[in-house]
């Protein structure tokens, strides 16, 4: 496939991501405002971090007058899942992909960009990820800036509807492989069940959702890898 076509595919798949981002980052902007960020600061911060939970944590810290060290720790914990995602992505590149392109894709990793990049058929073409980031990143940054400026002008109904766009996209990524591979289906069902359990269980439910996500991801993926290890032939078919 031509590079320009792949780029367009990336942009197309980046649209729902961008729409969902816009709604989420708008509400993030309202929190950023409490931290005293200007619209420009919010735009720059969101453009270069693209970390919903991480940004939420940082803006809350700024609002509370937290220390720089606290910001570092907050970023490490809330974004630790990106470490797992980037590690998974290392296996998704063609051996020919240059380090520079790998790093560029790495910097673009968000939950959603990772999701569609890992679902890419065969080796990941970096331009696909660039395309998705090209459309979604400005919307994420713009949403934050507008949230800071305009507070709550977007009708609640619209925010409510837009906020599920992200989840719809997640479903479109996890359901088709579940159909093909029973082990994935079991892992997905276990993830739903345990995630629900951990959101209501004592102690664990007080952890931030970012922390719960990383703990559950490690535990369930490790269990799945032990119970249903992938044979080499299966792995090569990815």
């Amino acid at each position: 496939m031509k590079k320009s076509k792949i780029l367009l595919n990336g942009i197309r798949d980046g649209v729902p991501i961008g729409l969902g981002y816009f709604a989420v980052s708008f509400s993030l902007g309202i929190i950023a405002k409490k931290g005293g960020l200007t619209a420009l600061e919010g735009f720059i911060s969101s453009f270069f971090t693209r970390a919903s939970a991480g940004e939420y944590g940082v803006y809350s810290l700024i609002a509370a007058g937290g220390s720089y060290l606290e910001v570092v720790i907050m970023c490490l914990i809330t974004n630790a899942r990106y470490l797992l995602m980037s590690t998974a992505l290392t296996q998704k590149f063609s051996p020919k992909t240059s380090l520079l392109k790998r790093l560029a894709v790495g910097c673009m990793v968000t939950d959603e960009i990772f999701g569609i990049s890992i679902a890419y058929e065969g080796y990941l073409e970096p331009v696909y990820t660039y395309g998705a980031a090209l459309i979604s990143t400005p919307l994420w940054a713009l949403g934050t800036a507008l949230g800071i400026i305009a507070g709550s002008i977007l009708p609640v109904r619209a925010v409510s509807a837009l906020s599920v766009a992200l989840y719809g996209m997640f479903l479109a990524i996890i359901i088709p492989p579940s159909k093909k591979d029973k082990a994935v289906m079991c892992a997905v069902i276990a993830s739903f069940a345990l995630s629900l359990l951990c959101s209501v269980a004592p102690y664990v439910s007080t952890l931030s959702s970012g922390t719960r996500t990383i703990i559950l991801t490690i535990v369930i993926s490790a269990a799945a890898a032990l119970i249903c290890p992938r044979t080499d032939s299966e792995v090569n078919n990815d």
């Binding site: 890992i118 409510s160 509807a161 599920v164 996890i174 559950l216 799945a224 890898a225 249903c228």
Partner: peptide, 28 residues
Amino acid sequence: KFVRSFLYYVPYVTLAVMTFPAILDATQ
């Protein structure tokens, strides 16, 4: 083999964990 299998499951598990029950809180 374990690490490869682990990394194979990571994306599906992490997205599933983030989707549910969060989708219930996203709406009014």
